[in-house]
Nucleic acid binder design. Sequence first.
DNA 1: TTGTATGCGTTATCAC
DNA 2: GTGATAACGCATACAA
Lengths: 332, 332
Amino acid sequence: MATIYDVSVLAGVSLATVSRVMNKNTKVSEKTEKKVLDAMKQLGYRPNSIAQSLASSRSNSVGILVSELHGPFYGAMMSGIEAELRTAKKHVIIAAGHSDEQSEKEGIEFLIDRRCDALILHVEAVSDEYLIELSKGSTPIVLINRYIPALKDNCIFLDNQLGGYLATKAIINSGHKSLAYISGPMWKVDTQARLKGHKQALAESGIEFNPLLMFEGDYLEKGGSQGFRTLKAGNVEFTALVCANDETAAGAMDAARQMQLNIPADISIIGFDNIILANYIHPKLSTIDYPIGEMGHMAARWILKNTYKDRSLDIKNMFDPALILRNSIKNV
Amino acid sequence: MATIYDVSVLAGVSLATVSRVMNKNTKVSEKTEKKVLDAMKQLGYRPNSIAQSLASSRSNSVGILVSELHGPFYGAMMSGIEAELRTAKKHVIIAAGHSDEQSEKEGIEFLIDRRCDALILHVEAVSDEYLIELSKGSTPIVLINRYIPALKDNCIFLDNQLGGYLATKAIINSGHKSLAYISGPMWKVDTQARLKGHKQALAESGIEFNPLLMFEGDYLEKGGSQGFRTLKAGNVEFTALVCANDETAAGAMDAARQMQLNIPADISIIGFDNIILANYIHPKLSTIDYPIGEMGHMAARWILKNTYKDRSLDIKNMFDPALILRNSIKNV
DNA sequence: TTGTATGCGTTATCAC
DNA sequence: GTGATAACGCATACAA
């Protein structure tokens, strides 16, 4: 492979000059620039990004840590990040954290060792304190789907409470008065926020929150079906069910169907996240849109601005959820 | 950040010795090894992987090019690759090709410029010739979901024809005699192979292939629904529908439902790929399992063996599809 | 505007 | 076993 040296010889200039035409930061006369460019073309020269990194102490790579590489949610997020970064000639190194504290920490260390210029983290298991400590290091971090007051400028997050509010409000607006709720794991912050929004909407409409109509799920299909059966087995009637995410709703719908219940005739359901699945299942699931793709773009933009000094970019930290009405809610 | 030099000073040894204890390739006395290790710990030393790469001309990174970062299919594949590589301390650089020739080529160049030690490609738009030419370069490549005779050792692929055969055979075994077929885009190789398997199963059972019962879709939901309506509008009756992938099947199911048709009572359907979706929709979709996650593992193992010289690994190039029976086929 | 010289943090090839 | 020292391919401060 041709090096900058080969190019300089062929063009009859110095190493430094070649470097200059590549980086366009110092003035080079048109004539010599052309000579260099020609030599490059002739040799099929391609810069060695590794050497560039070592010399400039910039790896031009940003590390991404997600819980899982599969799953509809992370895919959309990574897609947004990659698209944004790729046009800026930066690249993406990806690791999975598996929602496990040890694994998340290892992933972060792994990325830092790789000398990423910045990190985009979608972590759930590590503590706020750990992240605050981490942010004091030399590698900038931006947090997706997490809000830590002390790090608020580094957070790109959704107003989960508003989302929970909107979902429940949509059900109430359709005339329902007795609503059940299946949450995610209560240790997760977004679970709590969504539930809070649910209660807020309830309170606003003068409906009392009934603990017997609430079930703690796992954000997975299983929690949804299990929750639905448990709630049904209780002696409290309900005509609608608010689920903390779409997978939970899918599980609940499955369980309802097994009990010969029709959706939405017998029971109305709403989800949260608006993953592709929501549009595929039958009936199509009403839900709350979580603009995770856009948020991925924004996280990348944050880095372009703060780490790569592209001052022209504007950053938005908090995103708003939006109600998506489809066919899983019945007006009563 | 502490460097190897700092460590050597603190440990009272030379640079070279420190490098030796890191790489474990030359004998170092236990005593000095301990001194070095202690110094490392004390300084919190972390090797600079960029410098290592430059000096060793090994980036310890493998590039992955997929069509899209989102989508159930690629997620499972990347997940398999990352898991395998991570344990070997290699990392993954990801780019998206968007099934577009120009974009795929750019992505490949991008990854090569990044000095990846090897590439895992899931490409659809570039030609066989391009890939054959590429394989002559200094960066090894392995192809997923593609079979090119001249490059057969570098291919990790599914026996798509067998899959098509199994799907159709399952339908026939349930007693159906008039089957319709919605394919993917005919320019794709796997589309052709799956269709070939379909025809093979038909022939084997003495059922004539009827071009009027075939529709060329797009591997997406839209092609499925559109295809179903078109087929229904024709004057040829059919009791079962074989779809070239699950998304197509989902689209067809949706269209069927809109025509008040019950599945599987009125029409039996089978898909292909076994993406998560297949298990979520109602009725649960019978399909052909595509072990893409395992294939990702295998692609990574190919690289571990051939590029990183881990001779202990065994490579399997062709994977077999498997029939997954759920609730979308009726026995007649 | 262009050239020279040094450094980036390792690995690897020599010697000792 | 261990220590100098030359690459690796480029960026950049300093001169010219």
